[in-house]
């Protein structure tokens, strides 16, 4: 199968004001491809260009140079704009600012209504999408009375109702409390594992990225690292160089290595794995 998202030497520079010096490119010569069914986390600290990258996936921005292909469609081609957005749905940071209607199910129905589907089909998709995020019980509720995590799950359902092939999420958990974050992460993981949904998750939380199948690290608009989470997070020095703290488990093992010269592998991403590694080390 061809990749769902493909970037070929993509750069993007934000337009600058008259007479001002040109700003450095927000995304600098990035090439990558995302295969169907993958769960890719894009990591980077503030200003690393990760949010700009997300906007390029959805034709909200078009690259200054290079090409973005969504399921083979070039985002520069305005006649395909609808199909592009239908293929790669987008979830934003603030759940409040992406919910349109005063009733949950009406909001989830927004995209299929715009697609001009018959009302029976809309009903089917709304019910399916709400079930997929576990919010069926709330379909007649007013969104402003829901918690942050619930609102974000409604926003995800709103995108699912388009039946996209991939979902791009731009820091969907950044404005949520820990409970809400866990709730949204569970939903994302389930969508990826059970429904085979391709997910691109933009985040600056290590523990969220650790749950993905593949991690891309951005720094100053460039793609710095690309690989499996265990592989990426063991490169402690590179992570620190782009102001990212490695996951706590890896940080602990790294500290043991430095202070005691223990020579432990830095691949433990869960607390259990980490405990195992230390246990074996202590046993001899």
């Amino acid at each position: 199968m061809p990749p769902i998202i493909e970037l070929k030497n993509v750069s993007f520079t934000y337009p600058h004001g008259e007479g001002k010096p040109e700003s450095p490119p927000a995304v600098d010569n990035v090439s990558l491809s995302v295969e169907p069914g993958e769960f890719v986390a894009v990591l980077g600290h503030n200003g690393s260009g990760k949010s700009t990258l997300a906007k390029l996936f959805n034709a909200i921005l078009t690259p200054t140079s290079g090409d973005v292909l969504i399921d083979g469609m070039n985002t520069r081609d305005e006649s395909r704009l609808f199909d592009i957005r239908k293929t790669a749905g987008m979830v934003f940071q603030n759940p409040d600012n992406q919910i349109v209607a005063t009733v949950v199910e009406e909001d989830v129905a927004f995209a299929p209504e715009n697609m001009g589907l018959p009302s029976k089909e809309i009903r089917r998709r709304v019910d399916e999408a709400l079930a997929a995020v576990g919010m069926s019980a709330f379909k007649r509720h007013a969104p402003h009375l829901l918690s942050g995590g619930q609102k974000q799950r409604i926003a995800i359902a709103g995108v699912l109702a388009m039946q996209p092939r991939a979902i791009v999420m731009d820091e969907p958990t950044a404005m949520l409390d820990p409970m809400g974050r866990a709730e949204v992460m569970r939903t994302i993981l389930r969508l990826n594992r059970e429904n085979g949904m391709t997910v691109v998750l933009i985040t600056h939380h290590m523990d969220e990225a650790a749950q993905a199948g593949r991690v891309i690290v951005m720094n100053h608009g460039r793609m710095l690292l690309d690989g499996a989470p265990a592989e990426i997070f063991s490169q402690v020095d590179e992570l620190r160089a782009c102001s990212l703290a490695p996951p706590q488990t890896v940080a602990l093992l790294d500290r043991l290595n430095r202070d005691l010269n223990a020579g432990l592998p830095l691949t433990a991403l869960s607390v259990e794995q980490c405990a195992d590694v230390i246990y074996h080390y202590l046993k001899g």
């Binding site: 959805n58 909200i60 609808f82 957005r85 239908k86 749905g89 987008m90 349109v100 199910e105 009406e106 129905a109 927004f110 995209a111 299929p112 209504e113 715009n114 697609m115 001009g116 589907l117 018959p118 009302s119 809309i122 009903r123 709304v126 709103g158 995108v159 388009m162």
Partner: peptide
């Protein structure tokens, strides 16, 4: 991003 393009061709739930 959710395909809104005005009232034309819009259906209702």
């Amino acid at each position: 991003c959710r395909l809104y393009h005005g009232g034309e061709g819009r259906t209702r739930l």
